[in-house]
Nucleic acid binder design. Structure first.
Lengths: 136, 136
DNA sequence: TGATTACCCTACCAAGAACATAGACTAATA
DNA sequence: TATTAGTCTATGTTCTTGGTAGGGTAATCA
């Protein structure tokens, strides 16, 4: 399962994609529209900014906005950033790989099955961008 | 990601499938062969027994063994039992469904994408059984 | 200058994950 | 009948997640 944090991140980004090139959007507006606890959202947006997905402006007329075109931000990237591995096991993760101590990967049946699951998932989330999440 | 507990459960069941119809297998044997902390494994096997996947025999010559043919136990069933939902979001889960408060499912873009991911995953784990995990 | 807003702390709480430890109970067998 | 091999049960620790609450600083605009 995705953490609440990731779910909120995707929802917020979907909203910011919808409001793309309409100037900075208030945290409070996103919080209300997407029903996300404000203080929690604050931290999430900051993380997305530090990762280069969002930019922000302080002061009156300030807020958050997408750093690039929504079509350039893949869903997979967001999930990996906020949630971590997409794979079901560390030993089949591309970006968060960790060796299994209790099996040798060459002939681990579980390993092979989980690679299939991973690829099936990646096939979807690597192709989708924030455009596919755009929503009021 | 699958929890350690689920990973261990699948490994243990793979071993018990391999030893199918060879009498009760010691927890300690599974623990050694599959490198699973013994006491942790005890709890996992007990859970699998209570769910009807395993049976056990106490006392000398005792141990755990599969309650049914390994081909009858789906990987999906084990994951749902030990790990919980297979879907990435509660609002797209078949067995652990929970409504989203912050979107209406009819037109939630995230919802639709996650249904796709779920189906791609189910397409694999619903078709595989303990036979596919059989291993020494 | 003053209001607005992002940014950045600290502290707290409750629940679950991933173990580890200790011991109680049960059944076969020598 | 006593021993031993084995399951079963309960508790405790440490870490992460998902929050709540509050305060303070810095940038920006009118």
């Amino acid at each position: 399962m995705l953490s609440k944090r990731s779910q909120y991140a995707l929802k917020a980004l979907g909203y910011l994609a919808f409001k793309f090139e309409q100037g900075p959007i208030l945290i409070s507006e996103i919080s209300e529209k997407k029903k996300i606890p404000l203080k929690f959202l604050e931290g999430i947006l900051l993380e997305l900014k530090l990762a280069g997905i969002l930019e922000s402006k302080k002061g009156k007329g300030g807020g958050y906005y997408l750093a690039k075109h929504p079509g350039k931000v893949k869903v997979a990237t967001v999930i990996r950033l906020v949630n971590g591995p997409i794979a079901m096991l560390p030993c089949v993760s591309l970006y968060f790989y960790q060796r299994c101590e209790n099996c040798n990967e060459k002939k681990c049946a579980l390993h092979d099955m989980m690679i299939e699951v991973r690829d099936a998932t990646l096939n979807i989330v690597e192709k989708r961008t924030l455009i596919d999440l755009m929503e009021s």
